[in-house]
């Protein structure tokens, strides 16, 4: 399909205007994080750029600790989800046994229960396990995920069943087949799910707010809230510097994995 120059121009104008409007808040935060407080308060354009805000943010708050915690939590959740979801998806695709369909409905049913609706007893469970302010308390409740299982199930289904049969004839057991064939072949979808899992874990808010009471395992999202509420009222530059630090890892991940993520999410959602 070819397009006339006039039509092209219209599209470029629309694309550009939309991009400016959508990206304005992020851009603004980025610029503000390098501005002096003086400039921000007078509402002028930046007269000079400075790294003071970042220095202040790191000095006054244990941002490194928060970032480290967030990395640990996100990576643990990501790995946990990949392991559990791929195991479950394998069972739903490659194993035949009594009760499989029933269990599949159980997985579907989990999508009908919002975590927020069960958060009170969850908090009590974590508290009774003495898991408040621990990494396991922040991560383990999120390892099992129906959406991830379905996403991988769709991808595993595309693996020809003859591969399994050839392995059966060769005398290879299920677990080895899962490890040496299914996981490598479905690498792309595992990456997709991994990126998705990391993004959502990094951005988690309500649960870390409840499950942490001090800085030992507190994640960067809650740290940002602390920063925002504790910082004396008008030091916006420092707050924005904190916010930029929070979003940089996920933005990088998103930019790298956008195509895969888009394809993966559409597949998992719709087929």
């Amino acid at each position: 399909m070819t397009m006339g120059t006039g039509k092209k121009l219209i599209f470029y104008i629309l694309l550009t205007i939309s991009a400016i409007i959508l990206f304005a808040p992020t851009l603004m935060a980025l610029v503000m994080s390098f501005m002096s407080n003086q400039d921000i308060l007078t509402g002028s354009l930046p007269t000079s750029l400075t790294l003071d805000n970042y220095k202040n943010a790191f000095e006054r708050f244990p941002l490194f600790q928060y970032l480290f915690n967030s990395f640990v939590v996100s990576i643990l959740i990501m790995i946990g989800q990949l392991v559990l979801c791929s195991l479950a998806a394998y069972a739903f695709v490659f194993l035949e046994f009594k009760g499989r369909d029933l269990l599949f409905y159980v997985f579907i049913a989990t999508m009908m229960i919002p975590f927020e609706a069960s958060i009170i007893p969850n908090f009590h469970i974590i508290r009774d396990l003495n898991w408040i302010d621990t990494y396991q308390g922040l991560t383990i409740p999120f390892f099992a995920m129906a959406f991830g299982t379905f996403l991988l199930r769709q991808n595993f289904k595309m693996i020809p069943k003859e591969l399994k049969e050839a392995s059966q004839i060769a005398g290879m057991g299920d677990f080895r087949f899962y490890l040496t064939v299914v996981l490598p072949v479905a690498k792309t979808s595992l990456v997709t799910l991994g990126v998705y899992g990391f993004l959502t874990s990094w951005n988690m808010y309500l649960w870390p707010l409840l499950a942490t009471t001090n800085d030992s395992v507190r994640t960067v999202q809650i740290g940002l809230k602390q920063l925002q509420t504790q910082e004396q009222l008008n030091d916006w530059g420092v707050i924005m510097a904190g916010a930029v630090i929070v979003i940089i890892p996920t933005l990088i991940l998103l930019f790298l994995g956008q195509k895969k993520l888009q394809r993966g999410l559409t597949e998992g959602a719709l087929k």
Partner: peptide, 14 residues
């Protein structure tokens, strides 16, 4: 299958 001592070639080659 593995105890039947045979080999198999599939339509899609597997």
């Amino acid at each position: 299958p593995k105890e039947r001592n045979l080999s198999m070639v599939f339509q899609n080659y597997a």
